[in-house]
């Protein structure tokens, strides 16, 4: 009996030291909701796929025909410093410009006040190496992740943007198309490029998100695709119209790490 009490005390102590909670798995701790809303922008213009032109830092004009990226491994910080980590299995989302519903990610979280949100752009290396039985739904290479998975070099594509730019010399087909397929999780047997990026947004810059009965605060995140072309290094579409599995992809990833910003927190 004594040992049980000691053990329980030790566990409690461990739990409180750790100050981490995982909601949702038993349903009890996920009593409220909160929405992450991703809004794709090119500078101050919203991204459209109707041929609208934007200009990057290199002065190149381009339009977008496809834009999608994985958001995963979401965690939230409470005002008391507690970190709430969403159950990983239900923490993978593919934000597609072509699918408005995919840009609204509603999370089930414990009731509370939240001061920061952290997420990953991409798919963690561990999940990239899991058996297919643990990659269903949005992670199924034949389902949600179709077109976001490299079969020949097993791994997910994290960020995919395609479009046209008059800056590109004509290709064989006479089109001026650019294709950015950025992935790479660091390698399975030997290390390679790692383009996974973690992003933290400080909600206090706007206001604390308050969840609770009858409430659903919306954290509005702006994704500025122009940032993909600048920051650590200017990316010229004319010089690099196709970037996929290459060392150069690192520059794009270093840039896109800073394309997210907090637009507003709407406490609804």
């Amino acid at each position: 009996m004594k040992s049980i009490i000691t053990l329980s005390a030790a566990l409690l102590l461990l739990a409180s030291c750790n100050r981490k909670m995982t909601p949702g798995s038993d349903g009890k701790d996920a009593s409220s909701t909160l929405t992450l809303s991703f809004e794709n922008y090119a500078g101050d213009k919203t991204v459209s796929m109707n041929g609208e032109n934007y200009t990057n830092a290199s002065g190149e004009t381009f339009s977008v025909t496809l834009l999608q990226y994985f958001i995963s491994n979401i965690s939230l910080k409470k005002t008391d410093g507690t970190i709430i980590t969403l159950p990983q299995d239900s923490s993978y989302f593919l934000v597609k410009e072509s699918l408005p519903a995919s840009k609204q990610i509603t999370l089930h979280v414990p009731k509370g006040n939240y001061t920061a949100v952290t997420f990953m752009l991409g798919i963690d290396s561990l999940r990239n190496t899991k058996p297919l039985s643990e990659r269903t739904g949005i992670l199924d290479p034949a389902g949600g992740a179709e077109g976001m998975y490299w079969g020949w070099n097993s791994g997910y594509i994290f960020f995919k943007m395609e479009g046209h730019s008059t800056a590109i010399p004509d290709n064989k087909a006479g089109t001026k198309k650019f294709r950015y397929h950025i992935g790479l999780f660091g390698g399975m047997n030997s290390p390679t490029v790692n383009n996974i990026k973690n992003i933290t947004l400080d909600l206090k810059e706007k206001q604390v998100a308050k969840t609770g009965a009858g409430k659903n605060p919306v954290i509005r995140v702006h994704t500025n695709i122009l940032q993909m072309f600048t920051g650590t290094e200017n990316i010229s579409i004319a010089k690099n119209p196709v970037v996929m599995v290459s060392p150069f992809s690192k520059h794009i990833a270093d840039n896109y790490a800073s394309m997210f910003s907090l637009a507003a927190v709407d406490n609804k």
């Binding site: 058996p131 297919l132 079969g151 020949w152 070099n153 097993s154």
Partner: peptide, 18 residues
């Protein structure tokens, strides 16, 4: 030939989608 796949269960995806 390049060892791009390290799990037999993932291998057939390559020829099917190539």
């Amino acid at each position: 030939w390049d060892g791009g796949i390290t799990n037999l269960d993932l291998q057939p995806i390559a020829p099917i989608t190539n």
